[in-house]
Design a protein around this nucleic acid. Structure first.
Length: 896
RNA sequence: GGGCGCGUAGCUCAGCUGGUAGAGCGCCUCGCUUACACCGAGGAAGUCGGCGGUUCGAGUCCGUCCGCGCCCACCA
């Protein structure tokens, strides 16, 4: 590829340091990105340039806490977008000499994977089923799907999950590699792998020892389809149609009141009635008991500040449990518990007249309730409304308990973000991490982190301030990290929840359903006086909130942990500030009273061209692979890099096109510059020095921008410089001098040196953004010349590159050269002659000051404009820096 | 209802600490000038969302309103 001497006139010169030219004919006419991408990917993997060196000190290290993508999610342009942002920083830091730690993990445990596996194989997990070692699963056919899903054991189910996630991870990895992410693949992990399991369980042991995690039996937000507890962070409000139902209650001792409810199906679960203490309409009833219609249950009437006199009728029924406020009233007023909604979302079979279900007319109550028992909430609501139309059900004798018709409304209802039916509050035993009592510390630690852009901290702050419950970390699922706990069983086989048995840290990871706690034998499992395993698993965030510690091998390798924790940078999406960022900060606070990282860079999300957020649920997601095919990896990265952090960005193919065009331009400019040959000599000519001075200023600004995570303005500036100061101007102005075949041309070597400096520095400035094309051009000459095979291991441009280059004699000479040249081109355009047409003669008019600073660059301007002769005319009426072209005479068009 | 962000040429966006509007794409005109026609030169195009205010001067600061997006809260 290195053609030794392409200019025969120089062949006999003695040995001197030379800028060797390449033979442009040895390069393809057009840049073939697909070939280059494959070649450089292979070269990078074979080299060690992306590898973290544990021997180097912490101060030289830059640690990235890479987001582990949800492996079972589909490839999304948003991935390409935000992961490119991270790679920009990684590549920049590496070029500044940092020892970059850039791992990749896969978040494979959790509900998304389970759902995908259930659908793909058409199976369900039955924890009681025995393991089938030879079970072969295959993708379910349409015919299979007509049958009920196959029940498989928990280990079989987990195997199926692992199989599917392995495949998903392969496609993600292929995408990352295609994009050119400079990941050190030796640090790949899965949140379900043994190391992550160990660290998650180790975290639990540490929290337990510190008294920060405990199990509680309490009403918990519950998804009735997944039959699983849900944390506050996973809630989502959805607008749903509903209706106010006005229902008349009797008051014990005489009187009637009408409550308004959207959940008439919970009437049987009513345990109280409340109104605002200042509400004159109801003040007289406080302390008495109300009698529910249909079921004739007496319930206390009490005053509560939380009741809003403006809403409904101002008085409402408290049920176990209609919503979060019901839970508060139930606790504060020590109301009865009548839990009717079961874990599966159906109403329990209960007997009025029995303990806890007193009724003034049990027989009638049971007759009504019989129609509701076993029904799901939606069905029960319809039936309840009909029952309430029965005058015989009235508690007062005033006719049907339902007063008037239901009044339709639209209201927000809490859903599990991945769920299909509204959440219910169901009393269950769950593990909680204490967070509420650490609110102030969480705010302080969050503020210690530098947020990019800064206003993203506000989201964290709002979330933390509004936190209303501790973190429920137990999940009634299968594919995840087991909670490492057993419970002793007493003589009657009851679990003693107060004295859980924890494993030794050295034994981790454990699966309590198969491992046996110390001091017990396997035969004692589920036996009286034996032990019983916790079957729940952790919330997936419990593990992924430990990604910095997973990478640092916390608890296993103290030296490595000290070197990698806390990390420098957490890149992530704005949608998971309340989960991933929040929980990670919480874990680092509770475990180490530390921040998990010093910086957090929050990317915006991707919208479709109609400005709608691109998301799976909206069905407007496109796969990024065709974009890579069409616009090249560098072109796609260009699009991602041109968006500032935190800014939502439209998927606009025009921007990809610009990126691809830039790649082509770099290819061609590189080809031209490196085809020029000359002695290696200092940069001496005025124009060359003026260009170098401009370039130097660009370098200094670029470094500042990158250090403050401002990659988008940086790219814009470098690109604009490349185009307007390099290819369109300097390169054209210096071209003839650089190509001069006269060995005595003193400026030739200076021009070639400056062109090479320009290309060299610009390649390095572009390298984080466009790793493939920059590496390609770098490889043609600089790799050998600088004995640095990869531009990505080359130093980030700095003052060093400009050492020994004198400042231009006139600070404005570069601008004046360009302005004068453009003025001549404009004269040609006005005369409608081609830009290449020779100029017989012309007069350049400008004020004396401008003409003076043009002097040093005049010959280059005249050569570029193809002027054979010229005159200078001082004209003080022309403003500084402007030129007028007069008396231009153009040569006749010549052939050839 | 609260918070955050945004509203600049047809489109996508840039405009730092206030000083008389910028880029690319698209459009129109011209040009094959041996790095590049995946190019170059030139041109048309904006009352910087509206209204007030501060200032000698505001896209840039303050207030207010309108529109868009996102987050949170509303669940009787």
């Amino acid at each position: 590829m290195l053609a030794a001497l392409s200019f025969p006139g120089f062949a006999g010169l003695p040995e001197r340091p030379r800028h060797r030219a390449i033979d442009p004919n040895s390069l393809p006419k057009h840049f073939d990105a697909a070939v280059a991408e494959e070649r450089w990917h292979a070269a990078w993997q074979a080299s060690r340039i992306y590898q973290y060196d544990p021997a180097r000190p912490r101060a030289d290290t830059f640690v990235i806490d890479t987001p582990p993508p949800t492996a079972s999610g589909s490839l999304h342009p948003g991935h390409v977008f935000s992961y490119t942002h991270t790679d920009l920083v990684a590549r920049f830091q590496r070029m500044t000499g940092k020892n970059v730690f850039y791992p990749m993990g896969w978040d494979d445990n959790g509900l998304p994977t389970e759902r995908r596996v259930q659908n793909y194989f058409h199976i369900r997990c039955d924890p009681s089923a025995p393991y089938e070692p030879d079970l072969e699963l295959h993708e379910a056919s349409a015919k299979d799907r007509k049958e009920p899903p196959r029940q498989v054991s928990r280990p079989n189910f987990i195997e199926a999950c692992e199989r599917v996630t392995r495949e998903d991870e392969r496609s993600f990895k292929a995408l990352w590699q295609r994009l050119g992410l400079s990941i050190d693949w030796r640090h790949e992990y899965q949140t379900i792998d043994p190391r992550s399991r160990r660290i998650a369980q180790y975290s639990f042991l540490d929290l337990y020892a510190k008294g920060q995690v405990e199990s509680r039996y309490a009403p918990t937000m519950w998804d009735v389809d997944f039959q699983c507890a849900v944390a506050q962070a996973e809630l989502e409000d959805r607008e749903r149609p509903g209706a106010y139902h006005d229902i008349e209650f009797a008051v014990e001792g005489g009187g009637a009141l009408v409550i308004s409810t959207t959940r008439p199906e919970l009437l049987a679960a009513c345990v109280g009635v409340t109104a605002h203490p200042g509400d004159a309409r109801y003040r007289k009833w406080f302390g008495k008991r109300a009698i529910t219609p249909l079921f004739r249950v007496p319930v206390p009437i009490f005053a509560s500040e939380k009741a809003d006199p403006e809403k409904g009728t101002g008085i409402l029924m408290v049920c176990t449990f209609g919503d979060a406020t019901d839970v508060e009233w139930w606790r504060e007023e020590r109301l009865a518990l009548r839990q009717l909604v079961l874990r599966n979302g159906r109403l329990a079979a209960v007997e009025f007249g029995s303990e806890g279900y007193e009724s003034l007319d049990p027989q009638s109550a049971n007759r009504y309730y019989a129609q509701l028992a076993g029904k799901n909430v939606a069905q029960a609501q319809k039936i309840a409304v009909e029952l309430l139309r029965d005058p015989a059900g009235s508690a007062t004798g005033n006719g049907p308990p339902l007063r008037g018709e239901p009044k339709p409304i639209v209201h927000a209802v809490k859903f599990y973000e991945k769920g299909d039916r509204p959440l219910e509050f169901v009393p269950t035993r769950q593990w909680f991490v204490r967070l509420l009592e650490h609110r102030e510390a969480l705010l302080a630690k969050g503020a210690e982190v530098q947020w990019h852009p800064p206003h993203m901290y506000k989201r964290y702050e709002d979330w933390t301030r509004n936190l209303n419950s501790d973190w429920c970390v137990s999940r009634q699922r299968y594919f995840g990290v087991p909670i490492p706990v057993w419970y002793p069983l007493d003589a009657s086989g009851e679990r003693d929840y107060a004295r859980p048995i924890l494993p030794d840290a050295a034994a981790l990871p454990v699966d309590p359903t198969t491992d046996v706690p110390r001091g017990y034998s396997a035969e004692q499992r589920e036996q009286p006086n034996g032990f019983s395993a916790e079957v729940d698993i952790f919330d997936t965030w419990f593990t992924s909130s430990l990604t910095p510690q997973i990478s640092s091998h916390w608890g296993a390798d103290p030296k490595r942990h000290a070197a990698l924790f806390p990390a420098d940078l957490r890149p992530q999406g704005q949608d998971i500030i309340r989960t991933w960022a929040f929980y990670t900060i919480a874990k680092s606070l509770l475990h180490a009273n530390s921040v998990p990282w010093h910086h957090i860079a929050v990317s915006g999300f991707i919208t479709d061209p109609d400005r709608k957020k691109m998301s799976k649920s909206k069905g407007n997601v496109i796969t990024p692979l065709p974009l890579l095919d069409e616009y090249t990896a560098d072109g796609v990265r260009y699009w991602a890099a041109s968006a500032r952090l935190g800014v939502d960005t439209a998927l606009d193919e025009k921007v990809f096109k610009i990126g691809k065009r830039l790649v082509t331009k770099l290819f061609n400019a590189g080809k031209f510059v490196l085809a020029q040959e000359a002695d290696a000599a200092p940069i001496t000519e005025e124009l060359d020095r003026a260009f170098a001075a401009r370039l130097r200023a660009l370098v200094l600004r670029s470094t500042r921008n990158f250090e403050s995570f401002q990659h988008a303005p940086l790219l814009q500036e470098v690109e604009s410089f490349f185009w307007t100061h390099f290819t369109d101007t300097y390169l054209e102005l210096a071209k003839l001098r650089a190509r001069s075949e006269d060995p005595a041309q003193a400026g030739r070597a200076s021009a070639v040196a400056a062109l090479r400096l320009g290309l060299d520095v610009l390649l390095r400035l572009f390298a984080p953004f466009l790793p493939f094309i920059t590496e390609e051009v770098w490889s043609w000459a600089f790799a050998a010349e600088k004995e640095q095979p990869s531009v990505h291991a080359a130093p980030w441009p700095s003052e060093v590159d400009f050492a020994g280059i004198a400042d231009p004699a006139a600070p404005e000479s570069f601008d004046h050269a360009v302005a004068c040249w453009n003025a001549i081109l404009k004269a040609k355009a006005d005369a409608e002659v081609g830009m290449g047409r020779e100029v017989e003669r012309l007069a350049i008019a400008a004020n004396a000051k401008t003409l003076a600073s043009l002097r040093g660059v005049l010959l280059d301007v005249l050569a570029a404009a193809r002027c054979r002769s010229h005159a200078l005319a001082a004209d003080e009426s022309i403003s500084d820096g402007a030129f007028a072209i007069r008396d231009a005479v153009f040569a006749e068009r010549t052939e050839g």
